[in-house]
Write a protein that binds this DNA or RNA. Structure first.
Lengths: 205, 205
DNA sequence: TGTACATCAGTGAACGCGCGTTCACTGATGTAC
DNA sequence: TGTACATCAGTGAACGCGCGTTCACTGATGTAC
């Protein structure tokens, strides 16, 4: 809580929160710097005391999102240990849980068009998040019979793709598409079938 | 080729093509009615002779996309017959192929934010496309041992999600993400493993 | 074939709007003496 | 404790811009006689 009691008190955070809220409600397109300023009870010009501009504000929202996301992934991984299978499944679930719980952050991260390589700091925290998924895949792959073992990168990509697809198509109110099943069930069963295909789950379970 | 030889000749189509080109290059946000008009060599006001406005132009681009997409899906399905498995795999591949070959249409359809229910005509053609995927899943599900047979809708959703995820994350230049594998391979192997998990492909193939 | 007329696709000027951004400023807060 | 000063977060007015949209018009094309 730095500099409490100034004019606003914590405008920087208020702006990020407003941005996340607006992005959640209107999408990255609908978000405007002026509107975010207004929502924080402040003149648009005041934003420039804390950010370089519109893009910079979105990037900060994304950065905070990756921070939360990485924490969530790490927690999920740890909570599954010592079972590598449980850890892996937990990270898949965490992806969907994150998208549900932090939709504004999620959109800022994945749909706002800001590059992950915008700043070294942003790249680093994103890397931290993805590394968890890769580690989980790495460990799990050692349990696969070698003759049908795909490269770990490949199957972490599969799970990431399915998770992302489920989120985009069924967890968020996609244009005109209504989900035939709860997204959690969809992802759970999808990953289950996939892991069975890898020989990691017995066929009868 | 209606009304050839008028002032422009075929402005309506020229505008749709310009829109698709612009959406492909700058995303749905970067697309502007004025720019599309300029690219077609015409004043912005001329657009209103053929479309109700900006949204209507995007919707027409999406409609044409769904038309092509539906044709492609139907062709893929037919090309796999009489094997239900081959048909199913072909429709998955067709999804990715469409996204690759018609990126402008793809974005207009799936990332532009226009609702599928904007007009009955649009809803109908979209329905035609999705119906192919559902039919393929339906037929294929009859080959699954009943005790591990998920609802066909569910597993068409799985394949759709994975296809969509692969396209979004790995086939298009996502922000800062570089694909570890060719998207085609990723989708092919992903679907393969999934189908093995359903008992549709023998474990050793 | 030639002329007079109707059609209507595209023009060009104008509009109001909200955007992101700049700038000199002001006034509340914190600090030195 | 009180006063004088420095800091700097936020103000408010202004900007240029490109947007989508409107409107009366014009002039090339097609058609009737």
């Amino acid at each position: 809580m730095p500099k409490r009691g100034y004019h606003h008190g914590d405008l920087r955070n208020a702006l990020v929160e407003a941005a996340i809220e607006l992005i959640k409600e209107k999408g990255p397109t609908g978000f405007t710097l002026s509107e975010a300023a207004k929502q924080a009870g402040v003149t648009p010009a005041a934003v420039y005391r804390h950010f370089e501009g519109r893009e910079d504000l979105i990037a900060e929202a994304a950065r905070q999102g990756y921070e939360i996301f990485a924490d969530l992934m790490e927690y999920a991984y740890d909570s599954g240990q010592p079972s590598d299978l449980a850890s892996f499944e937990a990270t898949g679930r965490a992806y969907l849980a994150f998208a549900n719980k932090y939709p504004g952050h999620y959109v800022a991260m994945f749909e706002s068009g800001i590059s992950i390589n915008r700043t070294p700091e942003l790249a680093a925290v994103a890397q931290r998040a993805f590394a968890v998924l890769e580690k989980a895949a790495d460990r799990l792959s050692e349990h696969i019979p070698p003759e049908m073992r795909p490269p770990p990168q490949m199957f972490s990509a599969h799970i990431w793709a399915m998770s992302h697809g489920v989120v985009e198509l069924f967890a968020r109110s996609a244009p005109g598409t209504k989900s035939p099943f709860p997204p959690e069930d969809l992802l759970e069963t999808g990953i289950g079938i996939y892991l069975r295909g890898l020989g990691l789950i017995p066929p009868d379970s």
